[in-house]
Design a protein around this nucleic acid. Structure first.
Lengths: 338, 338
DNA sequence: CTGTTAGCGCTTTCAT
DNA sequence: ATGAAAGCGCTAACAG
């Protein structure tokens, strides 16, 4: 592995000239720049990331904080992660995967004190997230994937408001007046909480104009939980003609239980997958109508926002809402009573 | 951030003593060790990862090489990734996510020359994988997740032989004699290739004793492809009473197309998901009988093997085969002719 | 526009 | 058992 000293020697310039030729932090004559570049690729030089990081106090590494105590390996998250890694890379950053229970800020502080990371992407933000203060105290810039209650940080998130509106619109236009919302475990995810609030707002609006009754149910992320919630929903209000399920793992159980009750999807019960992946949508039968963002967009924007903040700290937080798309497949249809 | 110098000063010892107290690379009297440790946690000292890496020529970082040109964000892979990250972490390593098309060894060489990584985990290995020689030339130890043709490297992989046997056994015992195998795009994945070979071997054995006819079909990773393969399979041999589908994205289309033909799953056609995730299995209707390893085991073992190789290079390559489990759900039943 | 040099915070000889 | 000191390969003043 060639070092800068090697390059400098071969190019007949000083070491710092090589460094500046690389960084562009000060003007270099074209002639010397050429010599340096030539020497560099003759020696197949690449700068040593560790040495550079040590000297510059910037590692070029950002961490992706991945909670492990819930929703393990959620495919939706998987797409976000991969997209974030790609975006980071094309911005010249490396992406480090850091798995840790949400509660424990402790190990994260270790990571931070190692001086390894320049910034962090925080996945699955909760309202009261230990990780946020840990990062703040450490002075590490970060971008949320999702949002917390306060709005002082950078984030990238699905546009839940729009999602709520699109979802309700679709169902209302199909004549549904008794709708159930099956969410994630409500205590776990802020995202879940947010969407519920927004759905209720949507309901309020819809109720005023159309008289829609929306019931809210949280549900563990398992098929069995989906099954029992379905039974509960149908018992509680037999007039329920449509369900919004924001919980892929519960989806199979939910639909199965409805069918076991003799209800046909969508004839008797329309089901709409909120934030479902397209894979999940293709697996159910009938294929699922969904309202989802492109998860990869969220990951990419989050990474880009963080990088922008690292490069231009003065410009303040950056926020992006990714709009969702209604993909009408075969699990929704007109309400029979309509 | 406290440095070793700070700790040394506070403890009243030399800097090198602090270093050795930490690494244990040379004997330290109990008295001084206590002083040093006390100073360390009074100052909340953690060693700077960059400086340590620069000095020791070991970064403590391993890369996970993730191909982006296929099977994007496959949930199966997602579980592997998360498990690998956790395992790396609990072995004291950091996990860097490196996305790159399989073809290009070029960018990978960049990463390697940066001196950032001590080793690599190579996901989705192909028979002729550019990344292998790139790593080998660079002298970077690596562990495969999956296997190549040659068997000189460390790896962790599903036990395909067992998987093939278990799958065929299940179907044969249910009386199926005309079985279709729907694989991944055959040109892409060595794993796919391997399992096909092993299935054919299994077929050979089964054929000899039971006269099973196994037809092999490759299939793109989309629902539409699954649909057309289903039609093709049923046209080609109407006696087909069971299908092995090793392609989750195609699964929904496959089952849907069969049903559109008036075939009931499983009564008329048994379907078994090979290497399907449990999420996918819960989403289909009926819930899918699967033969799968625990993906997390594969990821964990791969990371552990790599770490072992980094720590004890002389012990040679480590190989692990993760056994699969047959999870009987509702998509398989006795052949009607049986 | 270019060169010289002092660190960045640690590991690891070389001494004692 | 401990200390002193020479780097690891780079960045960023500080000097022209």
């Amino acid at each position: 592995m060639a070092t800068m000293a090697d390059v400098a020697r071969l190019a007949g310039v000083s070491l710092s000239t090589v460094s500046y030729a690389l960084s562009g932090e000060r003007p270099i004559s074209d002639a010397t720049r050429q010599k340096v570049l030539a020497a560099m690729d003759e020696l197949e030089f690449s700068p040593n990331a560790l040495a550079r990081g040590l000297a510059s106090r910037r590692s070029g590494i950002i961490a992706l904080l991945l909670p492990t105590d819930e929703s393990d390996a959620d495919p939706f998250m998987a797409e976000i992660i991969v997209a974030a890694a790609e975006a980071a890379r094309s911005s010249g950053y490396h992406l480090l995967l850091w798995t840790e229970p949400i509660g424990s800020g402790g190990e994260l502080r270790e990571l931070v004190r190692h001086g390894l990371i320049d910034g962090a992407l925080v996945l699955a933000v909760r309202l009261d997230d230990q990780r946020i203060p840990a990062l703040t105290r450490a002075g590490i810039p970060f971008t949320l994937i999702g949002r917390t209650a306060d709005d002082v940080h950078s984030y990238a998130d699905a546009d839940e408001e729009q999602a709520a509106a699109v979802t309700m619109d679709h169902l209302v236009s199909l004549g549904h007046r008794h709708v159930a919302f099956v969410g994630p475990p409500i205590d776990q995810i802020d995202q879940g909480y947010g969407i519920v609030v927004r759905l209720i707002d949507g309901r309020t609006a819809a109720a005023e104009t159309n008289g829609v009754a929306l019931s809210i149910h949280s549900c563990e992320r398992t098929a069995d939980a989906g099954r029992s919630v379905a039974r509960h929903v149908l018992d509680a209000d037999p007039r329920t003609s449509a369900a919004i399920v924001m919980n892929d793992p519960a989806l199979g159980g939910f639909i199965g239980a409805a069918r076991d009750r003799g209800l046909d999807v969508p004839t008797d019960l329309s089901v709409i997958g909120l934030f479902s992946t397209s894979l999940a949508a293709s697996l159910t039968s009938p294929p699922l109508t969904t309202v989802s963002p492109v998860p990869a967009h969220i990951g990419r924007l989050a990474a880009e926002n963080l990088v922008a903040e690292l490069r231009r700290p003065d410009e303040g937080p950056r926020r992006d809402l990714v709009s969702v798309r209604l993909s009408i497949r075969d699990s929704t249809t007109r309400a029979r009573s309509a």
